[in-house]
Write a protein that binds this DNA or RNA. Structure first.
Length: 556
RNA sequence: GCGCCCAUAGCUCAGCUGGAUAGAGCGUCGGACUACGAAUCCGAAGGCCCUUGGUUCGAAUCCAAGUGGGCGUACCA
């Protein structure tokens, strides 16, 4: 990357300055910052190193900048010129030929352009969605699903060994309630008069499940008592709903490496043995019949119950065991993606991880703000239990996978998102995703035209890169250069939205260039050079959309 | 009460972990197709970055207090 080379140049210069005594001695705890400038007048990249050093060395920043510039050894001839500006910025102007030469990289790497080995093959688990199988996924889940999926893609692209997992919370009260809901509807369909409790699941899918059972088994389930029958209804419903969830996710382009059942944790007394061990280490204490986890020892605001008075473990107990399980499987990093309403849960899980002797920094939690739903500007209430929701499936069917995914990726995950159904359906023509896809389709169209006119599609070796010299062309190449840095930044911050913003930028620069300049013209040399440029843009758009799980169409 | 998140153009939001003159989309107004796709482009209007202090060469960004909103504060999951 050009940026890396400039950083190296500046670091070497700093070393040289100190060796020669051109700068006062001092301690600089890197890293050297090198940023894109937003104004070409400030060059291509700028560094604030001199200003940072000024406070350490207690000297004039412009004077320091002067020494740094004087000792630059541009042995590769990357630089056009270097300027000192403002309070002490060092502005680097890169030679046009260097930019154009960069295209060679992009063309050679193709679909590999943007990938890196930064992750050093670290094993990373991303756990997301993990909705209880008590009903179909709704739009709220959809956001977490896309964010998790794309975070995984980005980490993969930056060289991590990624494992995607869905935690099935199939133990506990909610599940019993689900089973009982289906059981009651079954009796109702079988002709019994029932009084359906308000706090049970009201959705129509409950009737559908009950109907399936009635069709298959007839009235045989009326013979035994409710207590005896409910486990059957529970597991039938859970399995059926879980299958539906899998299919919906698949249609949304979200695939998991593993679905992990909470029940696994209880096998071979797993949870009990973990609690015993933690008790031995002093992290758990008894109060009457309840067991408490001492999370205050790690900064949580209060201790937490892990085993109730009744002797049943809490959800938290299972979650401690689950996180232990994750680390035992050898993951170096664990990423949990939760709804933002679970934020209060973070300290205790971090505490649990720490109590097991694991560095809590290796556990990262992404909070996804819940999606509020509206229809033509009016809020639509959503509750799984009341059966009022728009499902993920409906959104995918009506808005389309590409538009839906892109929509959920356009905001930072911790910022609130309002999803307007009518707008999402209607918007299909002005949806931002089409802006980017259109750029790609346009590029493909240019390539088709070139072929039709008998042009051979050139490789980088067949063009004169110096033909690409107008500001719009340099701007395009620079934007292309940024792409690997965007991926790297996205992987570091776990922020997929950076890619959508980048894509929007890139598409905008391209469209603008396209409107002002002809790619295929009477000038064969120029046509070849521009064709290569445009092909490179296409590669980047395709790769970036690939990470988002959005298609890059050749025609629209 | 306590804790976490948020407050930036009329609306929806970016702002790359402290940088130079704060950006984009939508909306509004005005322009551009006899040439590679007008799902596009060009231009204009639009701002006390919630308020007040502090930290320093430099603050939308960090700290403190206040205001307004969301969420959490279970022996639910």
């Amino acid at each position: 990357m050009v940026r890396d080379r400039l950083i190296k140049l500046l670091e070497d210069s700093l070393k040289a300055c100190w060796e020669k005594g051109a700068l006062k001695p001092g301690e600089f705890k890197g890293p050297v910052e090198m940023e894109f400038t937003r104004d070409p007048a400030f060059g291509d990249y700028a560094s604030n190193l001199a200003m940072v050093l000024a406070s350490v060395l207690r000297d004039n920043p412009r004077k320091i900048a002067g020494q740094l510039v004087k000792n630059l050894d541009d042995c590769d001839g990357v630089l056009e010129k270097v300027e000192i500006a403002g309070p002490g910025f060092i502005n680097f102007f890169v030679r046009d030929a260097v930019w154009a030469g960069y295209l060679e990289n992009v063309l050679r790497l193709g679909s590999g352009y943007g990938k890196s080995e930064n992750g050093k093959n670290r094993r990373v688990q991303v756990e997301f969605v993990s909705a209880n199988p008590t009903g179909p996924l709704h739009v709220g889940h959809a956001r977490g699903a896309v964010i998790g999926d794309v975070v995984a893609n980005i980490l993969k692209a930056s060289g991590c060994n990624v494992f995607k997992e869905y935690y099935i919370n199939d133990v506990g009260n909610q599940m019993n309630r689900l089973g009982r809901s289906v059981y009651l509807r079954y009796r109702e369909l079988a002709g019994d008069r029932i009084d359906f409790p308000e706090d049970h699941y009201q959705g129509r899918y409950i009737y559908e499940l009950a109907g399936e059972i009635l069709d298959k088994d007839g009235k045989t389930h009326l013979e035994k008592t409710e207590e005896e029958e409910i486990p059957f209804f529970t597991s039938y419903a859970a399995e059926s709903i879980m299958n539906g969830i899998r299919e919906d996710l698949k249609a949304f382009g979200v695939l998991f490496d593993n679905y992990f059942s909470e029940r696994e944790l209880y096998k071979e007394r797993g949870v009990d043995r973990l609690l015993e061990k933690l008790e031995k280490n002093g992290f758990i204490y008894r109060e009457g019949d309840t067991l408490w986890f001492r999370s205050t020892a790690f900064g949580d605001e209060k201790d937490r119950v892990v085993v109730r008075e009744t002797g049943e473990p809490t959800y938290f107990a299972a979650d401690i065991a689950y996180h232990k399980n994750k680390y035992e499987r050898g993951f170096d990093n664990v990423i949990d993606i939760w709804g933002a309403d679970h934020h209060g849960y973070i300290p205790r899980v971090k505490a649990a991880v720490q109590a097991m002797g694991i560095d809590p920094e290796t556990l990262r939690i992404i909070l996804v703000q819940l999606v509020s739903l509206s229809r033509e500007g009016k809020p639509v209430p959503m509750s799984t239990r009341a059966g009022e929701f728009v499902t993920l499936r409906e959104v995918v069917d009506e808005v389309g996978k590409d538009a839906a995914r892109y929509n959920f990726l356009m905001r930072r995950s911790d910022s609130h998102l309002d999803f307007d159904l009518e707008l999402a359906k209607k918007q299909s023509n002005e949806n931002p995703v089409y802006y980017v896809q259109y750029a790609h389709a346009r590029i493909e169209s240019i390539i088709r035209t070139a072929r039709e006119r008998g042009m051979k599609i050139p490789g980088f070796g067949e063009i004169d890169p110096l033909q690409l010299r107008i500001p719009e062309e340099i701007a395009l190449i620079k934007a292309i250069t940024r792409y690997p840095e965007i991926v790297e930044g996205g992987a570091r911050s776990l922020e997929p939205h950076r890619l959508t913003f980048y894509l929007n930028d890139l598409a905008s620069i391209f469209h603008s260039y396209y409107n002002k300049n002809r790619v295929i013209s009477d000038d064969p040399d120029m046509s070849r050079a521009r064709l290569v440029l445009v092909i490179a843009v296409g590669i980047v758009i395709r790769n970036a959309l690939g990470l988002l799980g959005v298609s890059a169409p050749e025609k629209m």
